[in-house]
Design a protein around this nucleic acid. Structure first.
Lengths: 336, 336
DNA sequence: TCAATTTACGCAAGCGCTTGCGAAACCTTG
DNA sequence: CAAGGTTTCGCAAGCGCTTGCGTAAATTGA
């Protein structure tokens, strides 16, 4: 059996409450007593039962990071940044992977609802499910969204400004002389994707280029999808000369398909990808990418969350961060 | 405030114990009563407090997966496989990333020690720290190690047979006519690394080739290390004609350095990498790799863990899985 | 030196749940 | 219809901790 507070109390010949206070560094226990208790606790390798502690204290000092995809190196970077920031503040992070399944998201949400964690950060995922909304309504639950739009500005969130990012990408491609720029994004209807499309369209318009809806492609989020969409595209009526591909894995698939088809990047097709990480940097040719401020996304979301927990945040806040365009070979026109 | 068992009991006009039994599908509650309780619980969107539940029941149906590196796509695959298997058995998985810091490992271990999870799987990491040993001794804690060797066969583990894998790789390279095969691995002294070296040496000996310790390089686990080690190697006395690089990220760095140096793979240097995943498949040229049975590693480790929890496992078991050599361009000699 | 504070500590309730045990209510049989 | 067996349910203890409150002891000040 585990050693408990009670055991320590008995050994030190004091009350449980005193042990508790000593261990938690709370006032009301004399220097001598405290030292004695600490010593005994250490000698016996005492580990407080966090369940009991959480139950009694109504907080656990643990935060959940619930992410939709852990295949994405970008997300991993965000997580690491959150972890780093959390450590400084004395919070422990536990990770949950939903694999884009709403069911799992619900299930992990119960960590919050049942007080196992003091707050949760959601990275990615679609819109906002009713379960999430309810959770955040019904209790005063601390929830922060990262790169995930809510229909109402209901959640505190930190977002990448996709629209702005895509705008920059288009601008760059236009400068390079590309005329038929295709956008490969996720499901239309998804708010984040709509935003990308907005940026795309307005940049084209600004540049005096025609917007052709047939050049906008929706795919699912994986590698295969990127591969498949290219096959579909080259069978199509309008063949683009450049791609802006807005998700990491999809971009990889797309590039593979292009090369597999015997085409060259950027000679036959320019490519602007997403996410400045090991994947996109390793691929041949080096990819021009929109780089998310992953570090900042993590930091800011954690800070928001802590403020929510401490109830220092008056209203829902939304922070928007702009991605950076990192120009490499894959988008440099041979005519330049 | 949260709605509690007590509230439901009051509403249904029964005792708390009855509600508890109804909700947990335990015998001893009549059909009618049960239905009524379930209905009321649902209507009120009742969520049991898992802390309280865990405290009282001494189990939580949650398992922790504690991994040393979450940058590694291979590890991610293992995690996903664990998750899949766990879901079937009704367990929830929470992930913990230690970033190779022993401190963090200790800290996450407290999840186990304080009963927040019923068991833990450790993926990777070095040897076995005293904290881990103590934890597994002092309580009847359920711990399974994946790809991590213990000095004594104390832990139940599932391992990749690195020795065997490297052996195959050497064999293959020898067949291709390479003579000066270099091994890039981790810290000597680390049991897993020693095992790799064993496989390497015995394969060379078997092939009648001389073993040269100067061709064995130890690096840390990241990408930069792979890059740096190549620079070091080409300054050295003996220049190899082939590399076996045994960690994912390091391999990436190594390949980059080779290309950066103006050399060609496999013409100047053959490369056998590690891990059949998106990273190694995307790189140019396609890499010959030792492929871990990630799926199986995950499944088996979870099954072991569940058996440990249910105390169906009599003694520490060790399962060894053999990696497969997937031959691609990077190791095919031009002389063939 | 004695009242007035302050400090150190113990008591006990309570966090929300589970579970062993016993009592009542129900069903079997012969 | 009574004796015995089942079910269904409530009681109450307890999981290991925190925390408000009360009291005794130590400290202060004049």
């Amino acid at each position: 059996m585990q050693i408990t507070l009670k055991d320590i109390a008995r050994m030190a010949d004091v009350a449980e409450s005193t042990v508790s206070r000593a261990l938690n560094d709370k006032p009301g226990v004399g220097r001598e007593t405290k030292l004695k208790i600490l010593k005994i606790a250490k000698e016996n390798n005492y580990r407080p039962n966090q369940l009991a502690r959480g139950l009694a204290a109504k907080k656990t000092n643990m935060l959940a990071v619930i992410m939709a995809e852990m295949d994405s190196p970008g997300n991993i970077e965000i997580v690491k940044s959150i972890e780093k920031a959390a450590e400084k503040q004395g919070y422990q992070i536990i990770l949950c992977n939903t694999n884009n399944q709403e069911e799992k998201e619900k299930s992990y949400l119960s960590l919050l609802e049942s007080n196992q964690v003091d707050g949760a950060i959601f990275i990615g995922g679609k819109l906002v499910g009713s379960h999430l909304l309810r959770a955040s309504f019904s209790q005063e639950n601390a929830i922060v969204l990262v790169n995930r739009l809510a229909e109402e500005n209901f959640f505190t969130s930190v977002l990448t400004d996709y629209s702005q990012g895509i705008y920059k990408a288009v601008e760059h491609l236009v400068e390079q002389g590309f005329k038929k720029i295709s956008l490969v994004c996720g499901d239309k209807g998804d708010l984040i994707e709509e935003e990308k499309i907005d940026g795309y369209k307005s940049a084209l318009t600004e540049a005096g280029l025609e917007v052709n809806d047939d050049l906008i492609f929706s795919t699912s989020v994986d590698r295969q999808a990127g591969y498949d969409v290219f096959l579909e595209i080259i069978e199509g009526d309008v063949i683009p000369d450049a791609f802006i591909s807005t998700r990491e894995l999809t971009t990889i698939g797309l590039v593979e398909a292009i090369k597999m088809g015997g085409y060259f990047i950027p000679d036959d097709f320019a490519v602007v990808g997403y996410g400045d990480n090991i994947l996109t940097s390793v691929i041949d040719p080096p990819l021009t990418v929109l780089s998310e401020p992953v570090e900042k996304l993590g930091e800011d979301s954690l800070n928001f969350l802590l403020k929510l927990i401490k109830e220092e945040l008056d209203s829902q806040q939304i922070k928007v961060l702009t991605p950076e365009l990192i120009i490499r070979e894959s988008s440099i026109s041979k005519y330049n």
